[in-house]
Nucleic acid binder design. Structure first.
Length: 573
RNA sequence: GAUUUGGUAGCUCAGCUGGUAGAGCAAUACACUUUUAAUGUAUGGGUCCUGGGUUCGAGCCCCAGCCAGAUCACCA
């Protein structure tokens, strides 16, 4: 079964045959010795320099014996000039007249050798001496065009198609490519920063028998040989801490995490977090580390700590403001959470118009108040510090106030992009907090952890040095650094519902078409309405079947005065 | 999950109160030796998302579904 081909796709396949007849392999095996790139040639203009480059032909302007084309390589586009009598110095002009003018299509990969020059209008171009077809493209690309004023016409913008066919998006939308270049720069910058600080990049399991370290619904899979369920990790925290127990000073991992939750413009089922743990440090140290890290990364990505996100201008220049959670809530609601009971908090939250229910504990209630009333107000990078203990089961108790923890989150444009603790290393306290989480889970909080990771507690019992840990949502961060409000824009292949590929119908007729065809075989020609009465199909089914037959070339409808008649087409083979 | 907008040629989009599906680019053919969204002339190209229904007649109206976007809900 084949997918039905469009007119242009058929034409391109025919060209493939013609090329082969001319002895040209449309998919040659040999390497092509590329020595130059479009951007370099344009930036370091050298009249007459001999160059060799390759890429897709993205436009073609033919003017008789001379032509211009645009070649797009990994760096960008450059104009190339073809002259018939130079491409074909002898009598045989096939290479230019047939191959170049007729058998090449936009999107084909070609290689060219020639000399650099400037056209009369001053555009740096390559005067082609030789060209070869490197790979034929059988499907026409969307072709956005940029006019003299820099306005883009026919842009390929439909998000569904862009995400499903990211390869096409990347070919025709250079600004999309730029986002992913920046994404890679961000990872490299962060890695360098950590490596320079002497910390080690590690890898920890993605398949875990207990999905711990965060509160989220995991994906479940099954291991056949062990015959056990395994979970795709929702975080890597507990494994990195085990490594700190093992004696590493600083470990970090860029971690693909998986959460079986809703999808929208800020959530993809798989996303990338960076987590780092450094021993003998606390969250105050980590705040300073974080702000210098982000300043470093912003400069590496954009060349400046300043960044634009929607209407907001943000600056990642250190240091960042620090606000306690208690103060944040006082600032935006006037309510002081200090020393309040669960019921008092619930009443207060209800008074602010926040939906509450009985399953919510103190931590959850405070989180709701903050999320609803405060979070969105922090545009410039701001550390929110000292979270209530109930919200932070893996975090060390605050050195001055046992109802709080030594935790900060970094807010940018009203969204959390980093989360850090002075990590809890008291194994007895940790066990109690896990047990508390299990109770919350039993009470109905589906975000609370249901299982206790006994092995992790055992590790803590051997002793973990005081440690500070930081987690950064890499996708979110790159969204801020590239001014993209949708996570789909910063992931090469965001999750989509699988596409359905419709297969060609083939020559066989549908049942309704057969019904009509059989009648016509006897009658040869009939009044259209009489035939319709005879087959007794609904209007829609009739319509589809008659059109289907005509499409197969089996019937023909003709009009005489006001009467329509249908006849069989003879000898359609 | 709710609300809402959209799905028409390879691409971007028109399409009137329901009356034989349109444009630009791309394609095909011809002309043209430094063009700039090259140009001129001609030609071909459609499962109007799918399935039902209403109607003499549906791209358009009604019902159901599929896919996507936006907003909201959810979300360490």
């Amino acid at each position: 079964m084949n997918i039905e081909l469009s007119d242009q796709e058929i034409q391109r396949r025919e060209k493939l045959t013609k090329l082969r007849e001319l002895g040209i392999n449309p998919y040659p095996a040999a390497l092509y010795a590329v020595s130059d790139y479009s951007k370099d040639i344009k930036e370091n203009y050298e009249e007459g320099k001999v160059v060799c480059l390759a890429g897709r032909m993205m436009s073609q302007r033919i003017m008789g014996k001379a032509s211009f084309a645009e070649l797009q390589d990994a760096q960008g586009r450059i104009q190339v000039y073809f002259n018939r009598d130079e491409i074909c110095p002898g009598e045989d002009k096939t290479l230019y007249n047939e191959v170049f003018k007729k058998l090449l299509d936009l999107g084909d990969f070609i290689g060219v050798k020639g000399k650099v020059f400037k056209t009369q209008v001053g555009e740096v171009s390559v005067h082609v001496d030789e060209f070869s077809l490197l790979s034929k493209s059988l499907k026409p690309l969307p072709l956005p065009k940029t006019d003299a004023e820099g306005k883009v016409h026919d842009a390929f913008t439909d998000p569904e198609m862009r995400y499903r066919q990211r390869y096409t998006d990347l070919v025709v939308n250079p600004q999309v490519k730029e986002i992913f270049v920046k994404r890679t720069k961000l990872f490299a910058a962060m890695r360098n920063f950590f490596n320079d600080a002497g910390y080690m990049e590690v890898e920890t399991p993605i398949l875990q028998s207990i999905a711990g370290g965060a509160a989220a619904r995991p994906f479940i899979t099954h291991h056949n040989a062990l015959d056990i369920p395994l979970y795709l990790r929702i975080a890597n925290e507990l494994y990195l801490k085990r490594l700190i127990v093992g004696g590493f000073d600083g470990v970090y991992e860029f971690s693909k995490n998986f959460r079986n939750e809703g999808m929208d413009r800020t959530h993809n089922p798989e996303f990338t977090a960076m987590e780092i743990y450094v021993s003998y440090k606390d969250y105050n140290w980590m705040m300073e580390f974080t702000e210098s890290l982000l300043e470093h990364c912003a400069i590496a990505v954009n060349g400046t700590p300043e960044s634009t996100f929607g209407e907001n201008k943000i600056s990642f220049k250190a240091p960042y403001k620090r606000v306690t959670m208690r103060q944040a809530i006082i600032d935006f609601t006037g309510f002081d959470i200090q020393g309040k009971s669960e019921d008092e908090l619930r009443t207060a939250a209800k008074g602010m118009g926040i939906e509450v229910d009985e399953t919510m504990g103190k931590g959850k209630l405070i989180d709701e108040i903050f999320g609803e009333k405060c979070e969105g107000n922090y545009i410039q990078p701001t550390f929110i510090i000292d979270y209530p203990k109930e919200m932070s089961p893996l975090c060390k108790e605050h050195r001055e106030d046992p109802s709080l923890t030594e935790r900060f989150e970094l807010m940018v444009c009203g969204k959390e992009i980093a989360n850090a603790y002075s990590e809890l290393n008291d194994p007895i306290d940790q066990r109690e907090r896990f047990e508390e989480q299990v109770k919350l889970a039993e009470k109905g909080d589906d975000e609370a952890g249901q299982f206790i990771d006994q092995d992790f507690l055992r590790a803590l019992e051997y002793g973990m040095p005081p440690t500070s840990g930081l987690g950064i949502g890499m996708d979110r961060l790159i969204m801020f650094l590239t001014n993209n409000p949708a996570i789909q824009e910063v992931l090469f292949f965001p999750q989509m519902r699988p596409e359905k590929f419709e297969m060609a119908k083939g020559p066989e007729l549908t049942e309704n078409e057969k019904l009509i065809f059989d009648i016509l075989v006897n009658e040869q020609t009939m009044d259209l309405n009489a035939l319709k009465d005879k087959v007794g199909l609904s209007n829609k089914q009739w319509d589809v079947a008659v059109k289907g037959l005509a499409k197969h070339g089996l019937t023909k409808v003709s009009k005489l005065d006001d009467a329509l008649s249908i006849e069989l087409v003879e000898n359609q083979n």
